[in-house]
Design a protein around this nucleic acid. Structure first.
Lengths: 273, 273
DNA sequence: GTTCCGCATGAATCGATAG
DNA sequence: ACTATCGATTCATGCGGAA
């Protein structure tokens, strides 16, 4: 269990309590435009970029040069059209000095059913990866997946010759690409993360399953590193970080959420960072 | 088999041969930036929007007011960063009068495993939906999917009484919600299209499997409607349209591709539109 | 123990109706 | 006119009690 620090308040003010170049991963899901009206005031899509930029400026300050910022976001439909505030935000953050390194997709396995005359169910969200430099830390081996059916069927059809060739470590000849995978049980994932939305039985539902931050925490940090979530909510990111021996910082504006996380964390050993 | 018209030449010139408001669906995958250098000259990412806008202007002209434009595109990585030309293109096309109605994701099921030091395999592409008006045609029932295991297990447990009640079309009483599903075998999909990349048996590999245009052709057109692909390539979209009794128009700049498609189509009955 | 089954519910959108 | 609220839609998941 890593150490942690949670802060009650608006992250627009409270990020000043976080040191420069001290955070290895920021994983957060800010309130989407017009959502969570009672907390951050229900930011209108047209003002979303303006609202977010001071925050991303502070995040740029606190992130280490080799760190990563993962932003979970999806644009609303406004008047029958996808609003462009996410596109505008990406461009504006690049203007602040962020590099838009990659866009992962969270493909939600089990979204609520339904359709509308002009539209199907929205079953995916963006996970935008931003960095301060091109040489960021990435621990790809930590998120390998069990090998899939693709390899099973492909490899089961290998000839005996192919298998022997692999076992004897012959370095050349065709078949090498395929035989590379014999005996391996895990493969690298892609930039599509395919997880279910967790319908936890708990009273306080999270916007995303813990497996989602956990995946990125494994990928971009090592034990002892620091993970920050400036929109902590019910603490999903913080809990994932602590369970994986990372340090965690969380900021939350709603006292009820803050108290809930504080209570959950009170059982742990190292309350202060 | 629908009728067809294929045109040899640069779509920047040849779209003028297509009448105003005459196309019900445009499905195309333009050459990505810096790709296909020998054909469209390898458009540089920085000039991509400028290059594409005259084309999208013509597409706006030829599309019916109730028609749809599906643009299959994905931004390149340039100098370690995702380039923003797709974001810029969306915004610029809105300036031309297009509505950015939706963004579908093509999740490529079986991309070959692979990675780079800073990056995983890119396993998805954008399918941007643009419309001229909010009241476009959409035939959602045509793309329904086989029902999932949920219903199978639930419905197998219905009592005989429930089944009889459904068969006799009793309109009232509880159990109606459940019996709604008896006999139904298909559900609506989401905005994530989950298809394999098809390495066709043919000599000329397509950028996408035929199932991809086929899905959108079913969703946005009915038999007898007209489908246009201004970057025809090996003719995947055109063939899909014709096999589903739609009319097809294809434009291709490379004579070898044009000839290939012309030869494939020569066996069909109605060569001219 | 293991499997089976009921139940609750999730970053949603549209269109109609009410204030 | 303009905003706020409400109903319809109908799958996948995990938990927990039952068989």
């Amino acid at each position: 269990m890593g150490s942690f620090k949670i802060i009650l308040g608006d992250c627009r003010d409270k990020l000043s309590e976080v040191n420069d170049n001290s955070v290895d991963l920021i994983f957060t899901s800010p309130p989407y435009a017009d959502q969570r009206k009672k907390t951050y005031g229900g930011v209108h899509p047209d003002q979303y970029v303006e609202w977010f930029l001071p925050i991303s400026q502070e995040l740029l300050r606190v992130l280490t040069p080799t760190g990563t910022f993962i932003l979970n976001i999806k644009e609303r439909v406004v008047n029958g059209e996808r609003h462009t505030y996410v596109l505008d935000l990406i461009k504006a953050m690049r203007g602040q000095g962020w590099l838009w390194t990659e866009e992962f997709i969270w493909h939600k396995k089990n979204s609520y059913p339904g359709k509308w005359p002009n539209r199907f169910r929205d079953a995916w969200e963006r996970l935008l990866q931003f960095n301060k430099s091109r040489s960021f830390h990435m621990y790809q081996d930590e998120v390998m997946l069990p090998i899939g059916d693709w390899a099973k069927s492909r490899l089961s059809n290998l000839s005996e010759t192919d298998k022997i060739r692999d076992n004897s470590k012959v370095e050349s000849g065709f078949g090498k690409n395929v035989s590379n995978w014999v005996g391996r049980e895990r493969v690298y994932p892609t930039n599509v993360v395919h997880l279910s939305t967790e319908t936890a039985n708990k009273n306080h539902s999270a916007a995303f399953p813990q497996a989602l931050p956990a995946w990125f925490i494994r990928l971009f940090t090592k034990p002892g590193d620091t993970v920050l979530d400036p929109f902590m909510g019910s603490g999903t990111t913080v809990m994932a970080a602590l369970e994986m021996q990372r340090k965690a910082i969380g900021i939350e504006i709603v006292p009820e959420y803050y108290d809930l996380v504080a209570e959950q964390l009170s059982t742990y050993q190292e309350p202060l960072l």
